[in-house]
Design a binder for these strands. Structure first.
Lengths: 226, 226
DNA sequence: ATTCTTTCGTTGCCGAGGCAACAGATTTGT
DNA sequence: ACAAATCTGTTGCCTCGGCAACGAAAGAAT
């Protein structure tokens, strides 16, 4: 499958993928060549990346669904779903000299567009859209970074109350009012705490006059002492 | 202070900074111009970035020491020290349209080299070393990403035991033997757990035959059931 | 060798919060 | 509008692990 064919068949998906943002579709083919694009088909439950691998692939799911797993079988194996249009392996490309501590495998049948991100680290002198895609990659990585950093700060709070506060302060607010993008069940998952414990703690915080809530929003009344 | 002067006075520090890796010193001046470099002096305890700011500076500490704080005064304010040669604000540049949830301020007197990373997202067509510095940025962001991701996986484990296991499996090992880069006290801090609780749990794990340890290394004997 | 400092093992206490179970409220589908 | 499903509040139980305190070990410094 050459670049032209990929564009024709999957242009729709690429257009929605953040690393192609701001790039005219007419340049896709050239870019795909630059990134040594290659489409491969996978069956159900096939391995894309194994733990310990040092050659890290990165790419975009064109169809089907894959998932990323931490440790094969132990402890709280957290799974990240990778669906159509999602990109994977972006952060791992850097760790090339390291070994992968995650594995990626298909869930359903998949078509996957592999991209060789290592070209950015080579000697080639990219220009125009090639630079643009590099910038998009930077932005993508940076956004993931911010996200992980925020989440880590929440998780590193010792008490449930402080997790809630850390969450609230990391959210955009309009004069102290935070709109919750989740229901309480999802919020508990996001904070990594027990659902009923969250409900209990929110109740206490309301009682103590720290917050007000109507279920959809939370208003921060009192700031903790510095 | 122009680019030439910066190079002469601080070339030493820049050379050790990861974003200049692999770039011949002769090109520093040109690069600094491209990145709109600007050196500013700060007194003790001056603010570099405030919570809520939307214009995010990023740069390198040339002398002195600064720190990054999460929330002014609440809950577990985790502080990150930023010393000579350290770079800050790299991830935040992406979040430009967002508000900063951290603040950065100097601890001692500081000279700071501000770099305008937003040039990567502009229309300019960089080449040569400019691309190289972009690649270095990507690598830096990606490495931070891997680090945060790993740490988050550890933190998201519910039990202390699983945190230990998550840590061990995220470390390079030689046939099951992990060399600890920390003493136990630091390890506890890294895992975000109580020191004596860690000691207690390690003891239990040895008793149960899950690991062996001599204080400097830990050998994983038994893998938990999948 | 001896003193000082840092680290590590151990132990008792106890409180935060995980878990389970249930009932009322809210949302969704038909 | 009614039934089914999902979500939230509440409560009792019990364990994990934080905290404090102490003494032994192990380095460091003199």
């Amino acid at each position: 499958m050459n670049e032209e064919q990929i564009c024709r068949q999957y242009g729709e998906i690429l257009r929605k993928c953040c690393i192609f943002e701001g790039i005219p579709e007419s340049e896709y083919a050239e870019l795909l060549e630059y990134l040594r694009a290659e489409v491969r088909h996978f069956g159900e439950n096939e391995s894309i990346l194994k733990i310990g691998d040092t050659k890290i692939p990165s790419g975009i799911v064109l169809s089907g669904r894959a998932e990323q797993l931490f440790y094969s079988g132990f402890v709280q194996a957290d799974e990240t779903q990778i669906g159509e249009g999602d990109i994977f392996g972006t952060a791992l490309v850097c760790s090339e000299p390291h070994e992968s501590t995650v594995k990626i495998r298909t869930v359903t049948e998949c078509d996957i567009l592999f991209l060789d991100m290592s070209v950015f680290f080579g000697q080639s002198y990219p220009c125009g859209s090639q630079m643009r895609i590099a910038a998009n990659m930077m932005r993508l990585l940076a956004c993931q970074n911010i996200f992980l950093d925020t989440k880590l700060r929440i998780y590193s709070q010792r008490t449930l109350r402080n997790k809630v506060l850390a969450y609230l302060y990391s959210m955009p607010s309009e004069n102290g009012i935070v709109k919750l993008p989740f229901n309480q069940t999802k919020l508990a998952q996001f904070l990594g705490v027990n659902r009923s414990a969250l409900s209990r703690e929110l109740g206490r915080m309301v009682d103590e006059g720290i917050i007000k809530t109507d279920g959809k929003t939370i208003e921060i009344i009192k700031k903790a002492a510095p």
